[in-house]
Structures are given as structure tokens and as C-alpha cells.
Design a protein around this nucleic acid. Structure first.
Length: 326
RNA sequence: AGGGGUGUAGCUCAAUUGGCAGAGCACCGGUUUCCAAAACCGGGGGUUGCGGGUUCGAUUCCUGCCGCCCCUG
């Protein structure tokens, strides 16, 4: 058949779980970053950021990046990797994370993963199928095709190419259907054949994983006041500067909460208070989805918090349980 | 104080000549393996301001009270 496919192998595409690490996650505004500083210092670790938006340079306030001071005290990695005009993806992240983890270990330090992008986190904890890179031209064609012939034709196409994926993916989920087609098309092997990592969720070897849990209503309060704070700290100016410097932001960066709304406001599509409300609502919704992910990941050890004042004790406990286990 | 208007889901508002009270947003649950802060799927919500009256039946009509808005003094 098509011999070109032989050049691809599972080892190129499948990344195993990232082992020998401390994972610390929690929803947006749960206090991860601050806690991470303490844990890092107590465990002699360097921090690997697990954040899909902190990779963009110049997007500082809206992503609540760690302060320069914090970054001088403890090395942080996978922050400010690229310009907001560039594309980024899970697979790039996973590849980079493994590389950085090696570097950190070669310095005799431990790896502390900190961040709230659940897909990235899970991809590290479970390992993932990278597969062939995005083919944007192909995706555009599929989109056009759907606009003309409708979702049904896409679905029919997928049922023929990869019936298992067609069964698994929800009928209107054009993105995943497109991706599934993209993979069979360029590899000759259905995506459903490759993707097996997420099913056997277990703790990576020699690792600990923690998730910060607040009551939902407290999270809403924390989010609302964080968003207020971001605008007071000059978020709008930051967005203006990004526009001045880059013109238009890239596909991924421009959809970040705290950026897409100000962009719309600056283009005159929203009034100010409505924009602020939307940033708050979108952040709250993100928090909800993060928590849904965390619930589905049983290897995360839940740490319930009721008051900010408990943070110190929690950092100490996490650090202790990490040094004890090694 | 007098005149007019208004009160329905957390919010903004619908509801035919009186006939099972809806929509958007918010909120909640879920899916998630190269856009993931994205995308997709699903869900629950109401003593219709309060009390009386008419009616088989009242968010709708009548009436008293309360709250808010506008106008006039």
C-alpha cells in the first residue's frame, strides 16, 4: 500500500508520562503560583509552568504570570516561549516540557510542574499521542466543505475513514472530526488506534500530584476580585501595547480570556463595564471546566482550602510528603 | 402631595380575546489526546412584589397596600 507511512512509528508520536515530578494544579486564582514558590524552595525544585497562555511573551497581567522577583528566586520554565502571533499546541508543549525536565534534572534539581491548563497537565501525567502536526490548509478545506455540504457529509466521511472515532466524537464536534480525518489521511491509520494513553490514568512513577480545591462560591469571589485587580494593574494598556507591537494576535493567543474581550472593546464592539463582566464570567466558566477535568483525574490528591491563611501550612505539608516519598 | 408608569428566573426582558409562565445571558453537570483560557453536548431553575375580589380558570381584569421610575407642584 502506501509505503510512505512506514516512516512513522509509535515512538515518534507517543510521549510517555513525565515521571519523577511534583505536580501542583488548581483552578485559575486558586493560589497555585504562590504556593509553588514555597514548595519549590523546600524541595529544591525548579518550576515548569503548565499554562497554555503564559507561553506568550507580553501577555503578563491577564495570564497572572509569576513576578520577575519570583522568577529570580526560583527558575521558572515554559513561560515567554513565543510571540502572541505564533501558533502553539499541546504537542509542542509536551515536547518542550520533557526537554526542560531533563535539563532541570541535569542540574541536580527536582521538577515541579505548576499550572492550570488541564489538557496539558493530563498529557504530561498520562503521556499522549502527538501524531502528525496540524495541517491548516486541510482544516480550512474541511471547514469550507462543511459550510457547503453540511455536517452530515463530514460525518459520513469520518464513518468511512475511522468509524471508531466517528462513534466517539459528538456529532457537531467539527474540530475533533477534522483532526481525526487529518490523522488517517496523513498516516493511513485511524486516530482511534493511536489514542490509548488517556484511558489508563495513573500516577506517573515516583511522583506526587496535588490539586487545590476551594468551594465554588469562594472561587467566584476570588476570580471577580482578581479580574478587578488585573484591570487596575493596566491590563487594557497591556492589550493596547500588544496591538501596537503585533497588529493582530494569533489564533490561540487572541482567544485567551482577558484578552479577547479587551480586543473586542478596543474595536468598539463592547462597552467597558460589559467587557469587565464578560472577563469575569468567562474566567468563572473556565474555572468550572478546570474543576470538571480535575474531578476526572483520580490521581490528583485533593487539598481543600477555606482560608488564605492555610497556605503556609499546606506548602510545608506538600513539601514534606514529597521529600518523604523519595 | 397630586398625576402617570412599572413590578415575571440571579440579570435583561417575552407571554394572543383570561387557558399548562418562556427566551438570552448567568449558573450547574459532562466530553476532551496538535486551536484546549478553545470546541462540543446536556441540565435545573419561578408562591409572576404582597393581600383581597371577579372567574371553571388570573402574569393578564377589579381593588387595597408596598417598592421603584417619570412628570407636575
Amino acid at each position: 500500500m502506501m509505503t510512505g507511512f512506514a516512516t512513522y512509528s509509535a515512538t515518534d508520536w507517543i510521549r510517555p508520562a513525565l515521571e519523577n515530578a511534583i505536580y501542583l494544579t488548581g483552578p485559575t486564582a486558586s493560589g497555585k503560583s504562590r504556593l509553588a514558590m514555597e514548595v519549590a524552595q523546600r524541595t529544591d525544585s525548579e518550576i515548569l509552568s503548565v499554562d497554555s497562555m503564559a507561553v506568550y511573551r507580553g501577555m503578563d497581567i491577564g495570564t497572572a504570570k509569576p513576578t520577575l522577583e519570583a522568577r529570580e528566586t526560583v527558575p521558572h520554565h515554559l513561560i515567554d516561549l513565543i510571540d502572541p502571533t505564533e501558533e502553539f499546541s499541546v504537542s509542542q508543549f509536551v515536547v518542550e516540557a520533557h526537554r526542560k525536565a531533563e535539563e532541570i534534572r541535569s542540574r541536580g534539581k527536582r521538577v515541579l510542574l505548576v499550572g492550570g491548563t488541564p489538557l496539558y497537565l493530563k498529557s504530561l501525567m498520562c503521556g499522549m499521542f502527538l501524531g502528525p502536526p496540524a495541517d491548516w490548509e486541510f482544516r480550512r478545506q474541511v471547514e469550507e466543505d462543511v459550510a457547503v455540504h453540511g455536517m452530515e457529509s463530514l460525518r459520513t466521511r469520518l464513518i468511512q475513514a475511522d468509524p471508531l472515532s466517528a462513534h466517539k466524537i459528538l456529532p457537531n464536534d467539527i474540530r475533533r472530526m477534522t483532526r481525526a480525518l487529518e490523522v488517517v489521511r496523513s498516516t493511513g491509520i485511524p486516530l482511534s488506534h493511536w489514542q490509548t494513553q488517556f484511558e489508563r490514568m495513573k500516577m506517573p512513577a515516583n511522583s506526587r500530584a496535588f490539586v487545590l480545591c476551594w468551594e465554588r462560591s469562594r472561587m467566584h469571589e476570588r476570580v471577580n476580585s482578581r479580574v478587578e485587580w488585573m484591570f487596575q494593574s493596566g491590563l487594557l494598556d497591556e492589550v493596547r501595547q500588544l496591538i501596537t507591537k503585533h497588529g493582530q494576535l494569533g489564533r490561540t493567543a487572541s482567544q485567551a480570556v482577558g484578552y479577547k474581550e479587551p480586543l473586542e472593546y478596543l474595536h468598539g464592539g463592547l462597552d467597558y463595564s460589559r467587557m469587565v463582566d464578560q472577563v469575569k464570567a468567562h474566567t468563572r466558566q473556565f474555572v468550572r471546566r478546570q474543576e470538571i477535568w480535575f474531578r476526572s483525574m483520580p490521581s490528583l490528591q485533593r487539598i481543600s482550602i477555606d482560608h488564605e491563611s492555610e497556605m503556609g501550612g499546606i506548602g510545608e505539608r506538600i513539601a514534606e510528603s514529597c521529600t518523604a516519598s523519595n
